[in-house]
Design a binder for these strands. Structure first.
Length: 343
DNA sequence: AATCTGTGCAACCGCGATTTT
DNA sequence: AAAAATCGCGGTTGCACAGAT
């Protein structure tokens, strides 16, 4: 903590619109100031932030008080470093929402937007870049992509990204990926997340995709979507358009994620025991809800994708109710790539 | 031991949105 | 309805500290 005389030095300049009328201190907060602010807000609540400094006896502007409270003094803040689970949630949601830190932070109880933003800039960003991924789009950086497509696998999509303006959707061909030796990769290989074991009563999970990566990505179909229901009803999946999402969460985790962690896109988690036929009526209600949520999400992310080759019969139904099928995903990647090559 | 350099993070800034007057 | 005040957000800055030289 910095001594008060240093803070006085920092306090000379005055630029906040809201504090022109009064003399305000800037820079780091002293323990005494913290105490004053905590005491005041604990007793009175913050009310109008602009009046807090006067009432609390602080020579700060309201904006500074608000920031200090929200980012540091609030009692419900979670201390300690960001966990691996939280990190994966941040990556997942960032892929969908981009730099909307406040929105991302809402999915991490006790974390602030500032904390998430700082963690992204100081940690995750570097990890992604080290893997040859663009931290803004989550796609491969261009030279990386070129190397994989042209040097290692001359005519096949080895690690292909579905190209969209705000690429929130990644199709990964894991069979190709697993064939790439670590020495071919430009980025250092970083061991990542401990993958939790699947619970005993769950179906056998498919092999992990591209384990070389420090940020693993898996693809899922959500059978609760309206598109899925319709295509299933017509018993024809060919040509159907069913949303696929990618996630850094391993299939085995889906049955366990709590609501606040589940898909930023608004997918509702379902307990394993609650999934199937027994709850058809309830599911109808859920489907309607999710469909409307997806419509909102769709404005932010173009998650829908032509899935004419998704083989549901050979897919694994996960505890959360999503289907997982790596070979279909691979085929999808190939089709997508071929389609774009044709254009 | 002194200096330099890189990193993490708390705090600030500016701006747009919302609310109040 | 318009202006002013306030809030909330994302980007940026700069300080403190640790490790390297």
């Amino acid at each position: 903590m910095v001594s008060c005389d240093i803070q006085e030095g920092l306090g000379n300049k005055m630029s906040h619109q809201c504090c022109r009328k009064q003399k305000v201190k800037r820079g780091l907060w002293s323990p005494e100031e913290d105490e004053k602010l905590i005491r005041y807000i604990t007793i009175h609540g913050h009310g109008s932030w602009s009046s807090v400094p006067n009432l609390a006896g602080l020579e700060r502007c309201g904006k500074s008080c608000r920031l200090r409270w929200i980012n540091y003094l609030r009692p419900d803040l979670k201390r300690g470093s960001i966990t691996e689970k939280e990190e994966r949630i941040i990556v997942d949601i960032h892929r969908i929402l981009g730099n909307r830190w406040a929105q991302i932070a809402k999915h991490l109880p006790g974390r602030t937007d500032n904390e998430v933003k700082n963690f992204w800039n100081s940690c995750i960003k570097k990890k992604l870049i080290a893997q040859g991924l663009d931290p803004n789009t989550h796609n491969l950086l261009s030279d990386y992509s070129y190397k994989l497509n042209h040097e290692n696998y001359a005519c096949k999509p080895s690690y292909h990204s579905h190209q969209q303006p705000t690429s929130t959707f990644t199709v990964v061909n894991s069979q190709m990926i697993s064939g790439i030796s670590s020495t071919d990769m430009k980025a250092p290989l970083i061991p990542f997340p401990m993958i939790p074991l699947a619970p005993d009563n769950n179906p056998p999970y498919p092999p992990l995709s591209h384990e070389f990566s420090s940020i693993l990505t898996y693809e899922y179909q959500n059978p609760k979507t309206q598109a899925f229901q319709e295509s299933t009803a017509s018993q024809s999946l060919v040509g159907s358009s069913v949303p696929i999402l990618s996630s850094t969460s391993h299939p085995s985790e889906f049955g366990m994620l709590d609501e606040s962690c589940m898909w930023a896109g608004g997918y509702e988690p379902i307990q394993y025991s609650m999934i199937p036929e027994k709850r058809q009526a309830e599911q109808q209600v859920e489907i309607e809800k999710i469909t409307s949520e997806l419509a909102i999400v769709g404005q932010n992310m173009d998650a829908s994708f032509e899935t004419s080759n998704f083989d549901f019969a050979e897919s694994t139904l996960l505890p959360c109710g999503m289907y997982y099928n790596q070979s279909s995903i691979d085929q999808l990647a190939w089709d997508s790539w071929a389609l774009q090559e044709k254009k």
